[in-house]
Amino acid sequence: MNALSLRGVVKTYGDDTHALGGIDLAVPQGDFFALLGPNGAGKSTAIGIICSLVTKTAGEVEVFGHDIDHEREHAKALIGLVPQEFNFNVFEAVEDILMNVAGYNGIRRAVAKRRTEKYLKRLDLWDKRRTQARNLSGGMKRRLMIARALVHEPRLLILDEPTAGVDIEIRRSMWEFLTELNSEQGTTIILTTHYLEEAEALCRNVAIIDQGAIVEQGAVAELLSRARFETFVLDVRGIPEASSDFAPFTVRSRDDGKLEVDVPQGETLNILFELMGRAGIEITSLRNKSNRLEEFFLKLVHRDEAAAGVAGGAGQ
């Protein structure tokens, strides 16, 4: 059974603004799934429809086989949502926020108290349980929203850019937590993110959405295998002469004296090192300019704002 199925889902605002143009999506039970797309592609609209925050114009949505139109309460009980924007009462204490949401999900107080303690401890917020939410740091607020989404122990967890604006250490700990949740508890996770390395590191399957349409869907490994090349940035001593031939690699000099090299899929770096050595160039260090999923993503969406959105977030 699929954890989530979307069939022909359309969302139109007014007469002529098409946020979603009839998307089909299937997320298998137990999957760790990435929904990628540039700003304004329709990711948040799709999530809003799944979680009943946005009214769809047409189409069908099922959560573990429960249609959100006919079995809305069943479907909602199975979903936990971590939205992009903070959406809790900033004047309430951390503990009260979780207790309230547990109550909204029909969980009795005794059980809700145990779950609140469990998830606040797992997200390192137990010491802050009596703190008003407005006094938390940005990273803590993100973790609070994850704890809140888990307090009713949903089978499908949807995270809309959960690591936006958090530092690397917290991001890594959130990755570990989500991986554990997926592998140990079997929770199906759907993630939208601008950090494509995040999707590559965590997710098994991915869908890329652009201008309200799914432009690609499949296993991350399979999509990566279709990426044509990977770009590296090299710190070097020496400047390549114009006549130097580095085929099959494409080499570009940058203003900061570094080189950018496109390495076609299947080629090894050993050959590159050899060609550079022959040209009298010493390589002192190298790093990825961007990950391969990002290259693939950019190739697919082909839009200026997509490039801006991804370049701003990738690899930070």
Partner: peptide, 18 residues
């Protein structure tokens, strides 16, 4: 109105409440 403006009305809208 506060729940609507701060968006925490969504806590109820996404929950299985009639």
């Amino acid at each position: 109105f506060s729940a609507k403006m701060q968006n925490y009305v969504e806590e109820m809208l996404v929950a299985p409440i009639s």
